[in-house]
């Protein structure tokens, strides 16, 4: 337990520092993007005079240098003032929380499915060596298929041809969310499954060769019991490492998948805000996504310490 606490104490400052550096880098990157809020107003109202524009810029603080605006923005965020989203004309927090919830549901279901199918495939490869090349080929394929292409193919087949499932979007208020979840979850899970299968196969093969498995078999334990009670718990440790390492790629996968399926969520929000020049929202969404990713990584690491106490002793 002490090891886990030490790990958290070590990591949390690192996470905070990463967020500060990321916000700084993103702020300056955004400074290099086309158009600011005032130039947008210029397009919508041709009667604006140059004096008006200068006044508007001063009013919004846009005549200040970039780093001074960053400091003012950072001070506001630390006070809990996250500002407004220009695109949605709402406080940023009112837009961010529902999107985060939707993405967590999507990614959570996808990880659960990927882990279940992946571990099953891995166990198949470990228990039946003859099936191993097949599992190998399947994982290579799953790894190489670009997720946005898979998403489009699923839409064409299940939504356009068969008409079984919606092609994308969000459920009506009160309607069932499940049909809208099936295709996006399958899209993300298919790509993630490969890594789980490979790692599960490797870990289980190594585990099944160890003496305590032979002993369990000699005592007359059924193969199912040997697998579930004796091999899988130990093999779960490297799988958690994988989960920790993959948190970032999961968020990336959600961005593409949400865009393909026009599904509201953090990824689509980030994309829409970047494309719609809503930079305050884009920046805060990026920071939130990064924070959630790093916290997920930390959680997976802590779970690993809990499963394998030897890690803390090193």
């Amino acid at each position: 337990m002490a090891g886990a606490l030490r790990l958290a104490a070590l990591r949390l400052p690192q996470i905070a520092l990463t967020l500060v550096l990321l916000s700084l880098a993103a702020w300056f990157a955004i400074g290099l993007m086309p158009g600011d809020p005032v130039s947008l107003a210029l397009f919508s109202d041709p009667r604006l005079t140059p004096e008006d524009i200068a006044r508007l810029r001063a009013l919004h603080g846009l005549d200040q240098p970039l780093w001074e605006r960053y400091l003012a923005w950072g001070a506001g965020v630390l006070r809990g003032e996250f500002g407004y989203s220009r695109l949605f004309a709402q406080p940023v927090t009112a837009v961010l929380w529902p999107a985060l919830g939707s993405t967590l549901v999507l990614v959570g279901s996808a990880v659960a499915m990927a882990a279940a199918v992946g571990v099953a495939l891995g166990a198949l490869a470990a228990l039946k060596p003859r099936a191993a090349p097949l599992v190998d080929a399947a994982t290579l394929l799953a790894q190489a298929v670009p997720s946005f292409w898979l998403g489009i193919l699923l839409i064409i087949f299940f939504a356009v041809r068969l008409g079984w499932l919606p092609a994308g979007g969000a459920p009506e208020p009160g309607g069932s969310a499940l049909p809208f979840l099936v295709l996006p979850v399958a899209t993300i899970a298919f790509g993630q499954m490969a890594a789980y299968a490979r790692h599960a196969a490797a870990a289980l093969t190594a585990e099944l060769a160890r003496p305590h498995i032979t002993s369990a078999r000699a005592r007359g334990g059924s193969e199912a019991r040997v697998l579930w009670r004796h091999a899988l718990p130990n093999a779960a440790v490297p799988l958690l490492t994988l989960l920790a390492l993959d948190a970032g790629s999961l968020v990336s996968g959600a961005l593409v998948t949400e865009t393909v399926f026009a599904r509201p969520g953090m990824g689509k929000l980030l994309y829409d805000s970047v494309m719609g020049n809503d930079y305050n929202l884009a920046l805060l969404a990026l920071l939130l996504v990064a924070l959630v990713t790093m916290l997920a990584t930390l959680t997976a690491d802590l779970a690993q310490h809990w499963l394998d106490p030897r890690l803390g002793e090193r």
């Binding site: 390492l245 970032g248 790629s249």
Partner: peptide
């Protein structure tokens, strides 16, 4: 490595 790459690439 810890950061989500694609959102940053998009930005």
């Amino acid at each position: 490595l810890a950061l989500p790459a694609l959102p940053i690439l998009v930005l």
